[in-house]
Design a protein around this nucleic acid. Sequence first.
DNA 1: CCTACCGATCGGTAGG
DNA 2: CCTACCGATCGGTAGG
Lengths: 203, 203
Amino acid sequence: MAASRNRAAVTAEEPNRRADIVRAAGRLFHEKGYSATTIRDIAGAVDMQSGSPFYHFKSKHDMLRAVVLEGMSAINKAVAKAANSGKSPRATFEAMLRAHLDQLLGSEGRDFAATLLHESRHLDPEALAEVVVFKDRYETMWQQALKDLKRAGLIADDSKVTRLLLMGALNWTVQWYRPDGSKSIEQIARQLAGFVIGKPQRP
Amino acid sequence: MAASRNRAAVTAEEPNRRADIVRAAGRLFHEKGYSATTIRDIAGAVDMQSGSPFYHFKSKHDMLRAVVLEGMSAINKAVAKAANSGKSPRATFEAMLRAHLDQLLGSEGRDFAATLLHESRHLDPEALAEVVVFKDRYETMWQQALKDLKRAGLIADDSKVTRLLLMGALNWTVQWYRPDGSKSIEQIARQLAGFVIGKPQRP
DNA sequence: CCTACCGATCGGTAGG
DNA sequence: CCTACCGATCGGTAGG
């Protein structure tokens, strides 16, 4: 073949093009929404021609699936680690808040997490079922944390609605948080903890 | 003309087709998102041919604009009324929560409110500016309510972040509230009030 | 991964 | 408000 390229030589420093596509797709799905994002948008963002992403993914839907999977995996891992840290109920809860907000608002994870939250409805039933399984497991983790807080006498109500209202306060931060704003992720987590638990002791 | 129809005779009972389109568009924008909703979806939902909605609206974007305007008008009217009811700070606050949730979750307003919350980004800059103006005014109303609660000694913190966390808990209800669920809108409003103000007195 | 392309669908319009 | 249609764009593919 004329003009063959040396494929084997670049293995080590070869950038992961598939991961590039997932990142670009995540950013665009977050910014514009899944339906308003075109394959050409994604391809352009990683300097490819419009047909080339299909070398890595068999469909646009599969790109969404990859983004959502990444979001689920990252947030579950981060929050589970905090949940199992063995600290006091209060410290554990605060660590979970921080972990969740880090994924939601931090530069590494926010596009994946936001796409998970807002674009999952465009998944097909099979992929959606995976999201539902994740959600159930994730919510159980939080419910347990609330239960521990109640047992420790730190909150009065650990009902499901309490958890839902809490998740709302958490997840809505995506709509207003700005990295260059006056509040850090840490500060927001602390304020929310005080909100739920009641006045934090001021030493 | 052959087969002419008696137009004048139906004026009184003539359904408002424009309003029908706005309602159908609102429902579809809420369910599927603006970009994933086609003119053919909307036309079909009101039993029209695909070109006919353009007799009432000059573009799909204009339909979104109408839906969002309806959402802003309805929620502002309902919450402003509660805010100016002249009741005590606590009763006023609870009435505002109920009014906001009624618009967000009730069958008359939810599609408009949800589209306002989630699809406004697809508006052009001019229409978006109207939404920003509305938002500022609306947020000021809530900030004032929090200020009144603080003055009455019912809450410790009436900062902006408090308001944002509260709005998050409120607006996220769209994601989980079901009309046939175990909690009524009224109950959710009361629970949220207790959350913010602290334990409600149990007589 | 690019070139070249395709069928389907989309928002929108002319003319009645 | 319908009929009939249009140009543009979309997701996706064959073949290299």
